[in-house]
Structure formats: structure tokens, C-alpha cells
Amino acid sequence: MTGEMVGFTVDLSKPLVFQVGHLGETYQEWVHTPILTSESPRFFESDFLEILTRTVWWVVPVIWVPVGLYFITMSYTMGHSLPLVVLMAVVGAFVWTFLEYCFHRFLFHIDTESYWGNTFHYLIHGCHHKHPMDGLRLVIPPAEAAILALMFWNLYGILFTLSIRPVMFGGGLIGYVMYDMIHYYIHHGQPTKQSLKSIKDKDRNNTYRPACPVLKLYRIQNKGFGITTALWDRVFGTLPNTKAADKSG
């Protein structure tokens, strides 16, 4: 399991994670050719590992909203005024939108071709492109989110003072919950407001291949990285031109 197998074909009836690495340089084409069904494919032989990869959407707010509010309250009990705590929580959520953009642009959309590179990419984001309608893998599993949260908690300990650290972290968690809920909704809901419709179009542009026979949506891999807000796409010039894409089809 160290490299590409020439002519390798993924067997969709078997656990996928340790197969995709063998695709080598053909992985990118494979992972961006979506399977447009709501079925949730098996990732691992191990039932324990498999459970860790599947998450119903409501688990995210149930777990992380109380945790975020706890950390926000912590800064208040350390002596900061309520208006300042609220302001810093909003700033923390705003910082999350930038982190979200960076994750999508520089990590989730990297090009890989090595065995472990393909495997890692498929686990963290490629599966979302391959199975965009899998409702159990659209939000980040709690175990993965907890690891990321711990990393940022330690980072914030370097960047902020003891009393500001909790509220910035808590605000970031609330921002993350907003991101995951919006992401889930634009895939499985029916947005009525124009802003949400715009986000849905942009997210599909980033998910599907050109001229998809079912949804006629387009894949633009180098644009449209923000989900919660289009601000950073505007700032860095990565906002997709959906009208141009539609005309090209």
C-alpha cells in the first residue's frame, strides 16, 4: 500500500478508504466524478472506525453550541464586561470565517497522487466531492472536530491573554456550527432567500463535474471556498462567476 496500481479500479462494494490511494494520479479525476445518490458508502472494515465517520447533522449544534457558550461565559466570569464579551465572541466567529476559507482553499482542495496523500484527502474532504448527497458525512464528526478544537485552543493560548482566549475560542466554535449547519442545509434543504441560493450554487460549483447529467452543475476547483460568507472570496479574488459557468454549459 505504498503507491499507484496501474489500471486500479475502486470496488464500491468494499470499504473505500484504503482503496483510493492506489488510484495514484488518476485519483483527482475519480474523486471529482460524483456519485449522486443519498447512499452512505462504507469507509472501513472496522465497525468502530466506521461509526466515527458518520454524523447526523443535529449532533453538531447539540455538542458544540453549549461548549462554545461555556467558553464565552468563562471570559465574562474572568472580569470582562458583557458588551465586550459579546463583541469578542463576534470577532471570534469572524476569525473562523477566515480559517474556514483557508481550510477549503489550501487543504481541502490540494492535488494529491501519492497513496497516503490520496487517502488523507479522501478522508478529510474528497469523500464529500465523491458522494455529495451522503447526509451522514456532510458535517464534521465530533471526534475529528474535537482534535481540531484542541489544536486551536492551544494556538489561541499563544495568541491571546488568559481571559480573552476562552471567548475567542468560544466565538470560533459558534462560527463553526453556523458553517456546518449552512453547509448541510444548502445540500439537503430548499433555500428560499437569494443569499442562500447563491451559496448553494457556489458550493455545487465546487462539488460537481462540468455538465453533470443529473443536476447540470459545474465544478470550479479554484474558486468559491467560503461557505459561511463570500467575503474572503471577494477579498482574494476567488469568487466564482456562476453566470459565466451557466452560459458555458
Score class of each variant (00 low, 15 high):
T119Y: 02
P83L: 04
E144Q: 15
C102L: 15
K14R: 08
Q194C: 06
Y115T: 07
G175Y: 06
F94V: 11
Y208M: 04
T77W: 02
V90A: 09
I51S: 15
D134T: 08
Y176V: 08
V95P: 06
L136V: 02
L107W: 12
G24Y: 00
N206R: 11
T37L: 01
I164S: 10
K130S: 05
W64H: 13
I124H: 12
T53V: 11
D111E: 10
L23D: 00
L196K: 08
R204I: 13
H129C: 04
L239M: 11
V17W: 03
V91S: 08
A244V: 01
Y179V: 08
S40C: 05
T55D: 00
M133R: 09
P141M: 04
Q194I: 14
I182G: 02
M1D: 10
M181T: 08
Y156I: 09
H80A: 10
H187P: 03
L162I: 14
R204P: 03
E39Q: 09
F44V: 00
T238Y: 06
V91Q: 05
P141N: 06
P66L: 11
K243H: 12
A93W: 08
P166G: 11
K243Q: 12
L69E: 03
L49C: 13
L82F: 13
N118I: 11
L82K: 10
W64I: 13
P132H: 05
G21R: 00
W64M: 10
C102A: 15
R204V: 08
P132A: 03
L84C: 01
R54S: 07
M88L: 13
V20L: 02
F160N: 06
P132R: 07
F18R: 09
Y27N: 02
A145T: 11
R42L: 12
V59L: 11
D134K: 11
P41G: 07
S114D: 00
T53G: 07
Y70H: 10
L239N: 10
Y115D: 02
L69F: 12
I140N: 11
H22L: 04
G3E: 13
H80W: 10
P41L: 03
N241A: 05
I227G: 10
F43D: 04
D47W: 12
E4Y: 15
E100I: 13
C212T: 11
E50L: 13
Y27L: 02
V10C: 05
A93H: 05
H129T: 03
H183G: 06
H183T: 00
L138E: 02
Y101K: 03
G175D: 02
G172I: 14
G171Y: 02
H188D: 04
T55S: 10
C127T: 09
Q190Y: 07
V91L: 09
R105C: 01
K202A: 15
V60F: 10
Y101Q: 04
H121N: 13
G226T: 02
H109Y: 00
V177P: 04
P15W: 02
F236Q: 07
H80M: 14
L36E: 14
G157T: 05
P15L: 01
F120H: 11
